[in-house]
Design a protein around this nucleic acid. Structure first.
Lengths: 332, 332
DNA sequence: CTGAAAGCGCTTACAG
DNA sequence: CTGAAAGCGCTTACAG
């Protein structure tokens, strides 16, 4: 910067003024300065600027993992929304490990991020008090279980998604549904139940089969097999995420049941592979990217208006995409 | 820091000494300082330290996307390897867009990252001169096409993977193979051809079907259909990545050909869903995480020993995982 | 082993 | 509109 100033015949304060644009400078002076910048290939040193201004133009993002389509899209959309405003992304995958999250939090704090977005129920805000030095806003997104309440949250109406799936099955005449449920998916199941309750039907606890988070496709296959064995009269399977639904499709095939003729399968999450499975999967599609975009905008808003209270927007509505894996209840 | 010093009755230089451990301090003094740090909840300000030392303990990672299993694993493994040494990760997904990459590069430069890892052929180092201010080491990984040569690269022996697949098919007696090839997968195809050439057979260009990068599963289905239509006597399909192989499996089913009885299918990439497809996919497994780990270690080595030349390690060998989608050539 | 001083590269009031 | 000065929170030789 000093070099640029010398070359342009001004002081570095003037250079700073043209770079930041905070103070107007005479056009001809500005031209000289810009010329010097180009000739010298000067790039402002953001770490020095950060020390002076207190803003790093960097935000942290916590996700449990990046290996699922859902979180991969959250990451990409967050990065895009950030980039549009000149921010960069410090990525932290927590792997649902509290110790790891704590370490990352300390790292982000000492690096003075301007804000932090925590995506996915991670049980962090409850257990994880922010370090003393943490003076940045925090926003939560993709939150499904009880809300911590300490932070604004941009999330999806997961219960509505379940309700859409349930109503769809009811409209097709299904009365006996089994559920393959991942952990923390209580709202999705509650929505399905509400749709059945709307018609005076109950989905008993015995029809809900829980699958551990890490079980993956194999877990879906096993759970679907168990569900069909437990109640052979089941005519529909509702999976609380698409990996489980894909497993259900395979288990149905293995059991010699044709989808959707003998059995309907409805998924949840709109995994990009869903439309291409055979049969193409009917399922609940989530406004993932929209959610991530809004969350970043909320966070950046809080960054630039420190004191002001930020309102939590209403949960975003999912949609039901009807494809080929669901059909009318088979006639007994 | 000043507060800590005051509370411990020393100067801040002494506090710095105990925090960095660079200069030994008397045990009792150190104890007083540590106590003050704990009481005040002091966290060192890394941006100030960075300005003073020139090191940010942050590295940039360029990936084309984060929505494929391959790159998701690269990101997670890189983050792990970085975290072990106290580094944080600035993630940039380039989406194979030069303009976007250029912008990110400028951002990383002005943020003074300590190093940059570029994963995946991105045609960047050729077209993208580093900004003048960029004084950090760059390492490439997962590079498959011609190497830029300007930077060390940690990659995989992609040609060997193709050879393993080809030898496997030859051992099963296959003579007519069709190839579904993604762009930039020339080495994988070359390896397959070499295996056939080892036995005096040729894989003609007409048997190689190119699929655009963005075509996904639908592209694989279409290409496989085209391949089977072009040469109905084909007994084996080699796909240069698993999404294409999954498409091939579906196209085979649609065409009424049973895998592996009528047709063998071999994939490449070891997508986690491969073992769970029906039939389970035979394919080439890549040492993705090992590669990412080594790349970060190489990069961090270059960071801490600026002048020294870094050697490019030999490409990592893939492995063939034989599952159920490949079998003996059907008898004519 | 500890303290006083300079400096990292910027920005920000504050005079002129 | 431009220049001189102080300061952001650290580290680093350099004396004592």
């Amino acid at each position: 910067m000093q070099d640029v100033a010398r070359r342009a015949g001004v002081t570095k304060q003037t250079v700073s003024n043209v770079v930041t644009g905070r103070v107007a400078v005479r056009p001809e002076t500005e031209a000289r300065v810009r010329a010097a910048i180009d000739e010298l290939g000067y790039t402002p040193n953001l770490v020095a600027r950060s020390l002076a201004t207190g803003s790093t133009r960097t935000v942290g993002l916590f996700v449990p993992t990046v290996t699922t389509a859902f979180y991969a899209h959250v990451v990409e959309e967050a990065e895009d929304a950030l980039g549009r405003q000149g921010y960069h992304l410090l990525l932290c995958t927590t792997r649902r490990d509290g110790g790891r999250a704590r370490q990352h939090l300390a790292g982000l704090t000492s690096r003075s991020v301007d804000g932090l977005l925590i995506a996915g129920d991670q049980d962090l805000p409850g257990r994880l008090p922010l370090p003393a030095g943490a003076r940045f806003p925090v926003v939560l997104c993709a939150w499904e279980t009880e809300l911590p309440g300490r932070f604004p949250v941009v999330t999806i109406d997961y219960e509505l998604g379940g309700h859409l799936a349930g109503r769809h099955l009811r409209e097709l005449g299904h009365e006996r549904v089994a559920v393959l449920a991942g952990p923390a998916h209580g709202r999705r199941v509650a929505g399905l139940r509400r749709a059945f309750a709307d018609d005076g039907l109950t989905v008993p606890d015995s029809a809900v089969h829980l699958v551990p988070a890490s079980a993956g496709l194999a877990g879906g296959i096993a759970a679907a097999r168990a569900a069909l064995a437990a109640d052979p009269d089941t005519t529909a399977l509702f999976a609380t995420h698409d990996v489980l639904a894909a497993g259900a499709l395979q288990a149905a095939r293995d059991a010699g049941r044709s989808v959707p003729r003998d059995l309907s399968v409805v998924g949840y999450d709109d995994d990009p592979a869903g439309p291409l499975s055979r049969p193409a999967l009917t399922g609940v599609a989530l406004p993932t990217r929209e959610m991530a975009r809004q969350a970043i905008e909320l966070l950046l808003g809080a960054v630039s208006a420190p004191g002001e209270p930020v309102g939590t927007p209403r949960p975003l509505p999912p949609e039901l995409i009807v494809r080929d894996s669901s059909g009318p209840v088979p006639r007994a």
